[in-house]
């Protein structure tokens, strides 16, 4: 496949073939991380800028590792230390990075749609590393990659996403990606945390975690963001764990080889018990490893698309 998309803004904007192509490309990069010398020259001479408007360790580090294993030069910009604090607009920041002759911007932003705005205003590639509640495409790609590795195929799989769906970009990207690949997706959360008309994204909705687990081949457990409301968080956490927490007792009734995923960071004893997080069903650390391969693929393809644009001009 000839990759011509300069940006990766969300899985809503990719079709099935494109998603499969990214996953295949990721599979070919996975082996690099197992070598003695974990490096290929694919992006030698390219500059990747990690532009993070929201604190993030795991995603930023994963992108940095991925870019470095492709031999790219990596620059990290955290907004606390940048001119954004002096009132620079997003478009101006993007154009300045472009003027530095960077090739790819990897952006995390607290506002939904910010990467879309940036991508429209620069010629270089923009990779969405999570925007507001909107999308987190590389997280979903690595989740799907991991599932495919474990279960062989996505077509026909039953996947339950459990947790705060309303405020989750991971949920949205997973829903778009999984449904496009033919999975049957259900979302499970208290009513307050299910966004309006989510069924129209092609999922079923349940408020009963046991029902969500019953037929599932895999479950993706989302982190509850209790830090948003500091007061009375503790009783709420206990209540959530009681009603929605993924525990060994609950998994007894589930499929024997159910795969348990979590995008991290995990809150043990809130959305998932330690026993499950560390147990035989958990693929949480494999997800982290696969994240590097997926991000290598995404960076590699974006650079390719950009070169094609250049050669056409």
């Amino acid at each position: 496949m000839l990759w011509t998309k300069k940006d990766l803004l969300g899985l809503e904007y990719l079709n099935r073939e494109e998603i499969e192509f990214v996953l295949e490309t990721a599979a070919s990069f996975k082996e690099v991380s197992t070598r003695d010398i974990k490096k290929v020259p694919a992006l030698r001479g390219k500059t990747v800028v990690n532009l993070f408007y929201e604190p993030s360790t795991r995603t930023r580090v994963s992108f940095e590792v991925a870019a470095k294993r492709l031999s790219a030069d990596v620059i990290n910009i955290a907004t606390e230390t940048s001119s954004v604090r002096k009132g620079e607009t997003l478009i101006d920041t993007g154009k300045n990075i472009q003027a530095l002759k960077a090739d790819i911007i990897v952006m995390r932003h607290n506002y939904s749609g910010a990467p879309t705005l940036l991508a429209r205003n620069v010629d270089i590639s923009v990779i969405n590393a999570g925007d507001g509640w909107h999308e987190h495409p590389t997280q979903a790609l690595l989740d799907i990659f991991t599932l495919k590795e474990k279960l062989g195929t996505i077509e026909g799989l039953k996947v339950s996403i459990i947790g705060d769906i309303s405020h989750s970009r991971v949920a949205r990207s997973n829903i778009w990606g999984l449904t496009k690949l033919g999975a049957k997706v259900s979302v499970c959360a208290p009513k307050m945390l299910i966004p309006q008309a989510i069924e129209r994204m092609g999922v079923t909705v349940t408020h009963d975690v046991d029902e969500a687990l019953q037929e599932a081949d895999a479950v993706n457990v989302l982190r509850m963001q209790f830090e948003r409301d500091n007061q009375n968080a503790f009783p709420k956490q206990l209540e959530y764990f009681k009603n929605f927490g993924i525990t060994e007792e609950r998994l007894i009734k589930a499929k024997k080889n159910i795969v348990v995923m979590h995008p991290g960071p995990i809150n043990r004893g809130i959305e998932i018990s330690s026993a499950v997080a560390d147990g035989k069903h958990s693929v949480i650390l494999e997800q982290v490893t696969n994240g590097i391969a997926v991000r290598m693929a995404v960076l590699f393809l974006a650079a390719q698309a950009n070169e094609k644009v250049d050669s056409r001009q």
Binding site: H134, R169, R172, Q196, R200
Partner: peptide, 13 residues
């Protein structure tokens, strides 16, 4: 608008 669009865009409706 609150509904499918706000959900899709990840914006308050």
């Amino acid at each position: 608008n609150l509904g499918f669009t706000s959900t899709r865009l990840g914006l308050r409706g």
